[in-house]
């Protein structure tokens, strides 16, 4: 009797997400996905605080080492473009994963990871350039808050790259217990969030003059 019952529950879930066998939840939603969205909501407050700190301190710097003097907009635009495009490749990975096409999924995930690494590399290059121009972490309020904000974002991208590569590895070795598409989707949500944070940073920090 118990058996039948569980199958009923599973059957109910099926129309919702075809890889959710036997997993009953009150809302029919995945625990992991709820947790991820909640985590992203929480991250809004984290980046909000860092962006606010930067907004408050953007104008407080020594004479010629302010934002308007050090930015290299064409370069940053290029790296922003790279990150934006990585969101596309991430989406393509997710749709491939939903089709259970492991190979294509892995290809797109790898490309996303490469684009992300490229962005991080660009940021490292940018930081070193600024540093050579004399803008150290402790130089001014502007520099402290700038490096902290973009540094936090950079760390998030780096963690994302590690996640992507881990998922690729786990898919190849078939070590993902349960629903692969959901894992890819979760990493995707995280990745897109990192992207939208950069959309804000790019406009608020780089494009609007201090």
């Amino acid at each position: 009797m118990a058996d039948t019952a569980v199958h009923t529950a599973a059957g109910h879930d099926d129309h919702h997400d075809d890889h959710h066998g036997g997993h009953y939840t009150s809302t029919g939603l995945s625990n992991n996905k709820l947790a991820m969205w909640l985590f992203l909501g929480s991250e809004c407050l984290l980046f909000g605080g860092l962006i606010s700190t930067y907004m408050l301190y953007r104008g407080r710097h020594t004479s010629n080492l302010g934002p308007d003097q050090v930015w290299d907009i064409p370069f940053t635009s290029a790296s922003s473009f790279v990150l934006l495009m990585s969101s596309l490749t991430m989406v393509l990975a997710v749709t491939a994963a939903k089709r259970h096409d492991d190979r294509t999924t892995n290809v797109w995930l790898s490309i996303t990871a490469i684009l992300g690494s490229l962005f991080v590399a660009g940021q490292v290059y940018e930081f070193t350039t600024f540093y050579r121009e004399g803008l150290g972490f402790t130089t001014s309020l502007f520099s402290s808050s700038f490096y902290t904000l973009t540094g936090f974002h950079g760390v998030h991208v780096t963690v994302g790259v590690i996640l992507l590569l881990s998922v690729v590895g786990m898919i190849i070795r078939n070590r993902i217990p349960g629903d692969k598409a959901e894992v890819v989707e979760l990493v995707g949500l995280y990745w897109h969030f990192v992207d939208i944070v950069w959309i804000l940073i790019f406009t608020l920090v780089y494009l609007i003059p201090a």
Partner: peptide
């Protein structure tokens, strides 16, 4: 921002619970 959230992150079509959780954080922030 919202193009990515709505379409890439799928929030526009997803269950409203996800929207509630995320927008709560966003609006508060």
């Amino acid at each position: 921002f919202f193009s990515v959230v709505f379409y890439f992150m799928h929030l526009k079509f997803d269950n409203r619970w996800f929207s509630i959780l995320f927008y709560m954080g966003l609006v508060l922030a």
